[in-house]
């Protein structure tokens, strides 16, 4: 190793400090590289929703809606919501992995805008939600799903997907900052999210449930998100639907973003 010769390196001065925006962009680039190097992660992201879509459409579809073709029209928007809610768990896992490996120590010791690593995480999350959503939508189209509202409806639906992902992501960033083992973040994350995702109107109409459960389900934020998603894709959404769907993401952002910043600065 005698040929290792850092002594021959010239002294290098720092260039003009980059803007916070270009820092965030650099972290976003990292997220894109991760997709290129670890394409398997897409498999994790869409496997569960694809399984649910196939299972429910073909096994329960006939019983639930008369025919699989009718059921997929009901189910698919909800599956999109489920996908983004489930996948936001991975934001926390990614953060926890970075923290457990000391990578954030290096980032935090750089003269950069201190929150740019988070901005980068967000860029990665948005990409992840859009890619996973597109894959699920394609599967749906193959199975006979038709978004009545056309392209405009799909674009609006994806904006809602990004908003939901951004909002729920905060829960798991908090977990990621508190828990240094990525696997534990995932386990706790799914334990929290499972009942919330299932006690909703994603798969079944709440009217068919026992009264006490129906009362819970219609108040579940995931149900509001699903109603809005269906409405946007069918072209029947009202402004009220969308506002109700956005309530939870907005509240989560307002309440949890300061918590995340505090935890990050404290650590």
């Amino acid at each position: 190793m005698s040929a290792v010769s850092p002594a021959t390196l010239p002294t290098v001065k720092a260039p003009r400090p980059p803007s916070p925006f270009s820092n965030a962009l650099a972290f976003g680039w990292r997220a894109v590289l991760k997709f290129r190097h670890v394409p398997e992660q897409l498999f994790d992201l869409v496997m569960t929703p694809i399984m649910f879509t196939l299972l429910f459409t073909f096994v329960f579809g006939g019983a639930l809606a008369g025919s699989p073709a009718d059921y997929i029209q009901f189910l698919l928007p909800g599956i999109l919501v489920q996908t983004v809610v489930f996948n936001s768990v991975y934001s926390g896992m990614g953060l926890s992995t970075d923290l457990s490996k000391g990578l954030f120590d290096r980032f935090r010791s750089l003269p950069i805008w201190q929150l740019s690593p988070f901005a980068g995480l967000m860029v990665g999350d948005v990409l992840r939600h859009i890619i996973a959503g597109l894959i699920i939508l394609c599967i749906g189209l193959i199975l006979g799903y038709r978004p009545e509202a056309g392209l405009a409806g799909v674009v609006a639906a994806f904006l809602l997907i990004v908003a939901i992902g951004f909002g729920t992501g905060w829960i798991f960033l908090v977990l990621g900052l508190l828990i240094r083992t990525p696997m534990t973040v995932m386990t706790i994350g799914f334990t929290l999210i499972m009942p919330v995702a299932f006690a909703s109107n994603i798969m079944v109409r709440p009217e068919t449930m026992p009264g006490w459960l129906e009362a819970i389900v219609v108040r579940n934020p995931v149900s509001h998100m699903t109603t809005a998603m269906r409405g946007l894709l069918d072209g029947t959404a009202t402004g009220g639907d969308v506002l109700l769907a956005l309530a939870a993401p907005v509240i989560l952002t307002v309440v949890l973003s300061p918590v995340v910043l505090w935890l990050y600065r404290r650590s």
């Binding site: 980059p18 680039w29 990292r30 490996k101 000391g102 290096r106």
Partner: peptide, 24 residues
């Protein structure tokens, strides 16, 4: 740091480019 502060999924070159970009 005590534990390698590198992104394991990225290549060596990409890790350095990322940091160089962060420095400006």
């Amino acid at each position: 740091g005590q534990f390698a502060s590198l992104d394991e999924d990225l290549t060596a070159r990409e890790n350095l480019i990322l940091l160089a970009r962060l420095w400006g």
